[in-house]
Simulated scan of single mutants.
Amino acid sequence: MKTITLGAALILAISGAGWAAEGPGAHFVENWDLDGDGAVTVVEARERRSDVFASFDANEDGFLDAEEYVLFDEARAQDQAANEPQGMGRGAGNPANGMALDVNDTDGDGKVSEAEFLDNAQAWIEMIDRNGDGVVTMADFGQRR
C-alpha cells in the first residue's frame, strides 16, 4: 500500500502557476496541455487523468473509493481556491466539476474505477470546450456572455 500525503498528491496532480498571472484558463492549460501547444486534447486529458488517478488511489486497488475521494476533493478545493479566477464560479464549464465522484461514478457503485475515470475524459473536455472545436484552450475560459 502506498502512502500519499495531500500535499504530495496536490503537487503531482495539479501543480502549476496561478490563473491570475496569465488569465482565465492558464492554470488549466498549463497543467493539462502535455505537449505545450496551448490546446488540451482528449488524449492529453486521458493521460493526465491517469496520473491524477494514480496519485489518489492510495491503496492501489484500481478504484477511488469514498475515502480516497475525500482527499481528492480537498486537493481540488484547495487548488480552486488558490487558482480560480474571479467570475469562474462553480458552473457547468468549471473544469473541477468534471472530476467529482458523482460525475465519474458512471455505474453508481459508490467508487470510481480507473476505466470510469479515464473514459470520462471525452465528456469532460466536451464540457469545458465552449466553441466545440474538440480541444480546450484559454479561449474556452473567462466570463460567459
Results as ranks from 00 to 15, higher is better:
79 D>C: 13
24 P>F: 08
20 A>N: 14
137 T>N: 09
114 E>W: 06
100 A>I: 15
117 F>S: 08
44 E>F: 00
62 G>I: 06
27 H>I: 05
32 W>T: 04
29 V>I: 06
137 T>D: 09
111 K>V: 15
48 R>F: 14
41 T>Q: 01
85 P>W: 06
103 V>G: 02
119 D>I: 09
83 N>L: 04
44 E>P: 03
69 Y>R: 07
65 D>V: 02
36 G>S: 01
56 F>R: 09
29 V>G: 04
123 A>C: 11
40 V>Q: 04
83 N>I: 03
70 V>G: 14
36 G>T: 00
60 E>K: 02
38 G>K: 01
126 E>R: 11
39 A>R: 05
15 S>E: 06
3 T>F: 08
34 L>K: 00
18 G>H: 12
109 D>K: 01
101 L>V: 13
19 W>G: 15
125 I>L: 08
117 F>W: 07
111 K>Q: 15
7 G>V: 13
26 A>D: 13
36 G>C: 00
38 G>F: 02
75 A>C: 06
136 V>N: 03
114 E>M: 06
78 Q>D: 08
48 R>V: 12
39 A>C: 05
89 G>P: 04
99 M>S: 08
39 A>F: 03
129 D>H: 11
68 E>R: 00
91 G>I: 01
145 R>E: 12
107 D>F: 09
122 Q>E: 05
96 A>R: 11
137 T>W: 03
122 Q>A: 10
111 K>S: 15
89 G>T: 05
28 F>P: 07
116 E>L: 03
128 I>K: 00
82 A>F: 12
119 D>V: 11
110 G>T: 15
25 G>M: 02
51 D>S: 15
84 E>P: 01
72 F>M: 02
7 G>H: 12
123 A>H: 14
39 A>Y: 04
6 L>N: 06
